[in-house]
Computed example of a mutant assay.
Amino acid sequence: MKCLVIGATGATGYSLVQQLLEDDRFSEVVVFVRSEFPLENDKLKVHQVDFNNHDEWANLIQGDVAFSCLGTTLKQAGSKEKQWKVDYEYQYNFAKNASLNKVPVFVLVSAQGANSDSKMFYSRMKGELENAIDKLSFEKLVIMKPGLLKRPDSDRFGERLAEKMLNAFNSIGVFKSYKPLPVQVLASKMIEKAMSSEEDRIVVVSEFQN
């Protein structure tokens, strides 16, 4: 099988690519990145692309399953408009071209609390993206809705602080459902659900065991 990945340089995407390369069910792993990718493998094919000009590489989005785990923070993006471009437009354009090219399975990393009616910008953006991709013609759509992600060596102060607070609450039996989720577990679940034989066209995953 041939799989396609955007967001491969992020913590979740990087772990996902590592696991895909180790999985014998996949013969080719194609990643689309803006800069050089640090991994080398006989199964790996790297395309450096301009996400602002998706039509230039739309013909390359062909395979058996596409994984979308691209994302940024408001702080990193610098504005809501720029975050929307990365988290919504880039991912939607990737999904749209995957659909046009008849990629049957699409896996999207969304977020806990995603809701197009939310008053919170981030949650509303994620919810609107889910709705837009749902309207495309995938045979199977998997939507992952994780909470706080536990990234190796994260340099995001807010994430580190939230993780410490949740771990403290978890240790006394509080907020167990909000336990920080290691990106390796999320990546593994993405592959599991992509390859599962569930009959539902849309599979939403909001609970994870780690």
Rank of each mutant, 00 (worst) to 15 (best):
L4I: 08
V5I: 03
A11K: 00
T12D: 02
G13C: 06
G13S: 10
G13T: 08
Y14R: 09
Q19N: 12
L20H: 12
E22R: 11
R25V: 10
F26I: 14
V33W: 08
R34Y: 05
E36A: 15
P38I: 01
E40I: 02
D50A: 01
N52A: 14
N53I: 10
H54P: 08
D55E: 15
A58L: 01
A58E: 06
A58D: 06
A66C: 05
T72K: 13
T73R: 01
L74F: 10
L74K: 15
K75G: 03
A77P: 13
G78K: 10
K80D: 07
K82L: 15
K82T: 10
K85W: 04
D87I: 00
Y88N: 03
Y90W: 14
Q91V: 14
N93A: 13
N97G: 02
A98M: 03
A98V: 01
L100Q: 14
L100K: 06
K102C: 09
V103A: 01
V103N: 00
L108R: 05
A111K: 06
Q112S: 14
N115D: 15
S116F: 10
D117N: 15
D117S: 15
R124G: 02
K126I: 02
K126H: 10
L129R: 02
E130K: 06
N131H: 10
L136E: 04
S137Y: 11
G147W: 03
P152L: 11
D153T: 05
S154D: 12
G158H: 05
R160C: 03
E163N: 10
L166T: 04
A168G: 12
S171V: 12
I172G: 04
P182Y: 09
S188W: 00
K189S: 07
I191V: 05
I191Q: 02
K193Q: 13
K193H: 08
S196L: 04
E198M: 14
E198R: 13
I202V: 14
V204G: 08
Q209G: 12
N210Y: 15
N210M: 13
